[in-house]
């Protein structure tokens, strides 16, 4: 089943044409990796999927994006609801300067959920899903900023999971982390695939190869190649893709 579908998406920052006629579909419960050199448009495209570009004044988009069959740029769509369905994890861990509990409960609180037991249950569940519960269960009321970088990133993942999204967007989630934390995040992605559709932007091609089912290679705003990860890495159809994955440029 098609979970995410993009049709002829073009995007501009002012005069700058940053996404050129991107069309692709992603299935539910899969991991899709976006790779490509810096400035190729992969992060921009990722941010189109939960409309995080809306706040950039000069940003303009053409074409349609459907998630679970709904046009997410339709006027009737409330962007807040969209982002509850399509969660996001950022490059640099960005927990709120509040306790771990408050961080994870934030999404539910802003939806108006006040019941302590509901919040506690959701926090525990989300932290377990993010493989962090055992490390922090006794320090839920300590500042999230006191944790290590890898733990902070998992708090951010738990925070995104707490509102029960269907989709998780990850913008280079491990690029600021050490190898052990990175491995934990990668294991986590493999587990989360059971319940979520995951899109991950990464500069690390080994990571893309390890975690993803399908890989999209972006270059200069174009989607050059989009295929099963194994196929793309072992048998790339385009010369550009081959050059990139073999490290000859970028």
């Amino acid at each position: 089943m098609k979970h995410i579908e993009a049709n002829n998406v073009n995007a501009y920052y002012g005069e700058n044409h940053v996404l050129k006629d991107i069309s692709l579909t992603m299935k539910a419960n899969t991991v899709t990796a976006f790779i490509g050199p810096s400035g190729c448009g992969k992060s921009t495209f990722l941010r189109c999927l939960n409309r995080m570009n809306d706040y950039i004044d000069s940003f303009r988009k053409e074409g349609d994006i459907f998630i679970e069959g709904k046009d997410i740029y339709d006027k009737k769509v409330r962007v807040e609801e969209l982002r509850q369905k399509v969660g996001m994890v950022f490059q640099k861990p960005n927990p709120f300067p509040k306790t771990i509990f408050e961080n994870v409960a934030y999404g539910l609180k802003i939806q108006g959920i006040k019941s302590k037991s509901v919040l506690e249950e959701a926090v525990e569940k989300s932290l377990k899903q993010a493989a962090l519960w055992n490390e922090v269960k006794d320090s839920l009321h300590k500042s999230a900023l006191s944790l290590s970088g890898g733990q902070q990133q998992r708090v951010c993942i738990a925070r995104a999971l707490a509102v029960e999204p269907s989709t998780l967007l990850m913008d280079e989630p491990a690029s600021a982390l050490d190898p052990i934390s990175t491995a934990k995040i990668e294991d986590l992605i493999a587990e989360l695939k059971e319940n979520y559709t995951i899109v991950i932007v990464t500069h690390n091609m080994q990571q893309a190869a390890r975690v993803s089912d399908k890989t999209a290679f972006f270059y200069m705003g174009n989607l050059i190649e989009y295929d099963k990860t194994k196929e793309l890495f072992t048998n790339p159809k385009h010369e550009r893709t081959e050059n990139y994955i073999t490290g000859r440029f970028g």
Partner: peptide, 15 residues
């Protein structure tokens, strides 16, 4: 206040 804090909140569906 760093932009990342605002992004984190918007990303959670906050107004």
């Amino acid at each position: 206040v760093p932009k990342s804090l605002r992004e984190a909140s918007f990303g959670m569906g906050a107004t």
